[in-house]
Each structure stands twice: as C-alpha cells, then as structure tokens.
Write a protein that binds this DNA or RNA. Structure first.
Lengths: 238, 238
DNA sequence: ACCTGAACACCGTTCAAGT
DNA sequence: ACCTGAACACCGTTCAAGT
C-alpha cells in the first residue's frame, strides 16, 4: 500500500494519468468524493500540481467524460443501420455500468466534449448511410437524445444507489413499503405485477437490461417505421 | 428594495416560505447559486434559522421538487389515455421551462418525493383505466422514464444554457463553428439541414417544442401499437 | 522559471454560549 | 427552551514567497 503510493509518486504527473486516476476514484468512491484535493492525495501530489495539466475542475470533468466515451466499441461492420445503432448503444450502456457517475457528469456539463461529438458524428453517419434524409436524421437524433449514449433515463436509478455504498447488493424486492403502497395503489400494483409469467426473473424485481432494450426497441422500431413511410417535417403522417 | 426586505424579515419563517424562496432563487440565479447561507440572506435571516424547518440541504431540495411537481396540471377529463398522457406531459414540460434547474435536481436525488410518487401513480392509473395490463404498464412506465416528467433528455440543453445567464436571447444559429464542422461533417450537415422546408422556422435553429413532441409522439404511437397487438412480456412480437 | 505552502472566499453543518 | 454566533471540516482557486 505505502510502497504502491511511493511508486505512484515517482511516476511523473501527466494529464492522462490524472484523468485515469480521477475516473478510478469516481468509479470507486462516487463522484461526490472526487475533489481536487482528494484526487491530488490519491496521486501522492500536492493539490496545486494538478493545475499544471488541467485548467480547473470543469476541464477535469470534460477530460473524464472523453476517457469513458472513448471506451464505447466502434460500430460493427457490414450491418444495417438499425443493428449498428442498437449494438453501439448497448455497448455504451455497458460502459455506463462501469462508470455510474458519467450520466450526471455529462448532463451537468453543458458543452459537448470532442469524444462525444465524434461519437454523435459517427452515429449520424450510420443513419445517413442507411438512407435517412438529413431532415429525418436531425429529428431522430433529438428524439434519441441521451439514450444514444446508453442513458437509461429512469427517474430512479437503482443501480446508481447500489453503486454509492460500494459493495451493496442490489435491492432484492422492488415492492413498495406498506404505507407507500396504501397511498399509491397503482404504483404498488405494477411494482409487483411485472414479469410474473417469466419464471427466470420473478421475485427479483426489475431486469434493468430488459427495460432498457424494451425502450430502445420501441424507439428504433418507431424510427424504422417513419423512414419506411418517407417521413418529412413538412408532410407529417396522421 | 430595503423596505421589501424589512417586510420579509417581519413575516415569520415557515417551511413553505423557505421552499418558495429557494425555488425563486434557483429560477433566477441558477441552482449553483442556491446555498443555505445565500438563501438565508435572501430571507433576511441567519443561516441556522433554516435548520428549524428543513433538516438539511437534501431535504430542502426534496421540498423544492415537490413544490414544482405540484404545479403540473391535473389530468384532463373525459379523454382517452393517449390524450391524457400527452397533455399532462406537455404541462410538465411547461413547468420545467419555468424551473430549468429541476431536471438536474431531480436526477441528483435518488429517492422519490411524495409529489413525484403521486404524479406517477396518477399516470399509471390513466394507463390501467385505458385498458393496459399491469405487465405492459410496468414496462411502459420504464420506457417513458423521465420523459413522463417533461424531461427533454437532450444531450445538450440549449434552454438550460440560456437560463443560466438570465436574459440571454436563445442562440440564433445552431450551426457548428467552422473548425468543428470540418472534424464532424455529419453533424454539420444535419445541424443546418433540418426544417429547411418549413419557412416559419428556417434559419432560427431548432424548435425545442417540435423536437419534444416528435419524440413524445414516437413513444406514444409505439406504445399504442404494442397495446393493440396485445403485447405481453412472455410473448414478444418480432 | 518552476513549484508549492499559505491564504482567500466560499460551503454545509455542529456545538456551545448567550438569551 | 430557544436562538445564534463562532467554529469545524471541507471545497476550488489565487497568489506570492521560496527554490
């Protein structure tokens, strides 16, 4: 432990080493534990030393975002647009499972980082190559929104809560506490009613992956239908 | 100004007065300007006085969330589920336009507040009354996710950036700067290509409301189709 | 010229002293 | 018993002093 810190102290600081240490710290201790002082201590360095490599904390966060976005797999080759988008978004979701702090960090920054722009540019290219008009592609990208980066967009992210306290096991039962169930009967009903006919998942609450793919396919199928109908913004069906 | 502050100081503190002052402060100065000390000063009160009415800052945020969620209109009567959901979500979106800090605040808290639970319960009730199975309703609520509260889920929220600095007019052109356009040609193409055939919007970039309704209708139409097909989680079409 | 300790202006919250 | 000033343990960042 002390020897390892000594080795780290000998290695010269660099922007890359700072960014990866920051990502590791956020992964392990949560984004709320990531402070410049805390990160410096982790690196065996005085806080002000970081400012030679990153201008400030916002730029540190931007750099961390680029690091994790670059972990997303490249597009699969020789496949139709729908398959390419689906696989890449599922890869993004895998990345977010390793870095549960990333969605909040990305949303709290209001400028696009280079890696995010490159990723979005590639996704747009996939749609255009798949025969989508520029017009429809524009609206589709807006409609996909942050889901294109694998965000689940759930209101209450169970996985985020588990990630906080480290090795906590996922909540075994999604059921509401009795007093809440009485006040919110509809919620209580659907909390327990889902997947009751699928033996492999019954009793252990929600299957995150299932819910994510359900929503993703709902979007992708709707998008495919619009394209097949020759949708344009000047001539909307219905 | 000074007289107004004097009047406020005379009015006794209460949880409601604190919450509404906090909401007003976040609306005007941004959520990053909302501190316990700052809020106390706004109320003409010593910081510690707040702690008689809210346990800590997290509870203050929870209370603020309840205040704004309660501003969402009640469900319209005598309409089908799709219309009820659509109108209510558009009302939620109007609320968020008044309180641009709310999405980040809601996402950063990982517990549901009473007002959010009541809202979700009501939405579930609408779907159940519209003939949805408990099973399908469960998955639909997950798929709607935060969009059910009016979140646009855009990766880069133009309105949030405008809301920060107060009276800034919305960005007139959505076009990328030249050096970015060269690196990200697909993004550059769709940034300018959208809505070129709709004279009322051309040249002024994205129409937020159009993009929101486009995505919302994509979801609602897909959901309607699943219900009409008699979707269940054990027997998935395709 | 480079590095870094102390300092500044904050923050949420505790606690004990004053009424 | 209630209220509140001072204090504590932080934070990001500036700046000047030391090498």
């Amino acid at each position: 432990m002390a020897e390892q810190a000594e080795v780290l102290r000998r290695t010269p600081l660099s922007r890359g080493r700072i960014l990866h240490a920051a990502v590791a710290l956020a992964d392990e201790a949560g984004i709320e534990s990531l402070s410049m002082r805390n990160l410096a201590q982790e690196l065996g360095v005085v806080p002000m030393a970081l400012y030679k490599h990153v201008a400030n904390k916002d730029e540190l966060l931007d750099g961390m975002i680029d690091v994790v976005v670059d972990e997303i797999d490249p597009p699969v080759r020789h496949a139709d647009w729908k398959h390419v988008l689906r696989e890449r978004i599922l890869s993004a979701r895998q990345m977010l499972r390793r870095h549960p702090w990333a969605p909040l960090a990305i949303e709290s920054r209001n400028m696009a980082t280079p890696a995010v722009l490159a990723y979005l540019d590639s996704m747009v290219g996939t749609l255009r190559a798949g025969g989508f008009s520029a017009d429809l592609t524009h609206h589709v990208m807006h409609a996909m929104g942050s889901r294109i980066l694998g965000f689940s967009q759930e209101l209450f992210d169970v996985s985020r809560r588990a990630g906080r306290s480290g090795t906590t096991q996922p909540e075994p039962s999604e059921g509401l506490p009795p007093e809440a169930a009485a006040r919110f009967p509809h919620l209580a009903e659907i909390a327990t009613a889902a997947l009751h006919d699928d033996a492999s998942v019954v009793g252990q609450g929600c299957d995150d992956q299932f819910e994510f793919e359900f929503a993703l396919d709902l979007l992708l199928d709707g998008i495919e239908r619009l394209q097949q109908q020759g949708w344009t913004s000047s001539r909307r069906p219905r």
